[in-house]
Amino acid sequence: MLVQVVRDGVVLALSHRSGQGRPLLLVPGVMADAASWQPVVDALSTDQPVYVLNRRGRRPSGPLGDDYSVGTEVEDLCRVLDELGTDDDRSGGVDVFGWSYGGLIALEAARRHAGVHSLTLYEPVMRPFGLQALDALRQADEAGDLDRAVEVVNRDVSGFSAEYVTQLRRSPVWQALRPLAAPLARELAALNEHAVELPGYGSLPMPVTLLLGGDNEGLPPYGEPFARISAAMPRARVRVMPGQGHLAHAQDPRTLARFIVEALDWAHRKDPSVTAGHE
């Protein structure tokens, strides 16, 4: 089921699984939309209503817009939080999960919006990130070459092998990735233009769980920004997912769903004043 929220004339579409009580909102990063996160939603063993945001630039949501920035995404998310928190039985706020770029957007929104009850963040990223690929992505964007954009993000940002990309190109997944690459150059540019105030993350009052794929611990491109963010958030609980990388939503959605539910259970019991730490 799809629901729509409108901000300044731009439609923001969300998938919706019905449930009871406080909503859970998933915020995907680049090269992903609600459809690609549906296997995780299907595996979530929670009775909460679950929403997945199709961020702007993903159909059926509206376009990025002329003045696109991380601030645009944050304002969008705050508008969605306003809408999801209006029902009487949802006065306790919204549980927010963010992945990658979506994790950064969720962090920034949590600094501004009082309706975030808890945060679960899977390898959030921050600048500098993927700068070595930005020129190639801009060239692919100018040429309208979505195949090249998919190749660049997998090879030059995520660091996958040429063999992996060749196999990916032969799979049905490639056709799903092509339209998701359309906003990629502008999203990556916006990420790298956004100045992060790390100390502000450390003062967030809600329970926070940071999820890290064990294969990325301490390694670029995802482990390094994770380490910087987690160091700035000493009260956050860090959970390592053994054997996982950055794409558990696609490669092992059941395991990721289990870690998300565990984080929600912990958050619902959590006193935010208690130091959690690495597990």
Results as ranks from 00 to 15, higher is better:
residue 58 R to I: 08
residue 70 V to C: 07
residue 78 C to S: 12
residue 64 L to D: 11
residue 46 T to Q: 06
residue 166 T to H: 12
residue 86 T to P: 09
residue 261 V to W: 04
residue 262 E to D: 15
residue 61 S to Q: 04
residue 138 R to F: 08
residue 38 Q to F: 02
residue 266 W to A: 13
residue 200 G to D: 11
residue 188 L to S: 00
residue 160 F to H: 13
residue 197 E to L: 09
residue 132 Q to C: 01
residue 108 E to N: 10
residue 147 D to N: 11
residue 273 S to K: 04
residue 184 L to V: 04
residue 72 T to D: 03
residue 105 I to D: 12
residue 56 R to C: 02
residue 60 P to V: 06
residue 204 L to R: 09
residue 256 L to I: 07
residue 224 E to H: 02
residue 167 Q to L: 10
residue 208 V to M: 05
residue 229 I to A: 06
residue 188 L to H: 12
residue 98 G to D: 05
residue 118 S to A: 12
residue 11 V to Q: 10
residue 144 G to I: 11
residue 174 W to N: 00
residue 85 G to E: 02
residue 255 T to M: 15
residue 45 S to G: 12
residue 15 S to I: 07
residue 231 A to L: 04
residue 136 A to W: 00
residue 57 G to M: 00
residue 266 W to M: 09
residue 204 L to S: 00
residue 179 P to A: 01
residue 99 W to Q: 14
residue 249 H to V: 08
residue 102 G to V: 08
residue 217 E to A: 15
residue 190 A to F: 13
residue 266 W to I: 05
residue 28 P to S: 05
residue 254 R to M: 13
residue 253 P to E: 10
residue 101 Y to T: 11
residue 77 L to K: 01
residue 100 S to P: 03
residue 254 R to K: 15
residue 139 Q to P: 10
residue 88 D to M: 14
residue 137 L to P: 06
residue 106 A to K: 03
residue 187 E to C: 04
residue 87 D to R: 11
residue 90 R to W: 06
residue 49 P to A: 05
residue 272 P to H: 10
residue 163 E to G: 10
residue 8 D to S: 08
residue 123 E to M: 01
residue 127 R to N: 11
residue 123 E to I: 06
residue 129 F to T: 00
residue 90 R to F: 07
residue 123 E to S: 03
residue 126 M to G: 09
residue 102 G to N: 08
residue 247 L to P: 01
residue 184 L to P: 03
residue 58 R to A: 05
residue 24 L to A: 06
residue 150 V to P: 00
residue 172 P to S: 07
residue 70 V to Q: 10
residue 98 G to S: 05
residue 219 L to N: 02
residue 53 L to W: 14
residue 244 Q to S: 14
residue 227 A to W: 09
residue 16 H to Q: 11
residue 211 L to M: 05
residue 173 V to S: 10
residue 265 D to W: 03
residue 17 R to E: 06
residue 225 P to S: 03
residue 47 D to A: 15
residue 71 G to T: 11
residue 63 P to E: 00
residue 193 E to C: 06
residue 37 W to C: 03
residue 273 S to G: 12
residue 112 R to H: 15
residue 166 T to M: 13
residue 199 P to K: 09
residue 64 L to R: 00
residue 257 A to T: 02
residue 217 E to Y: 15
residue 67 D to V: 04
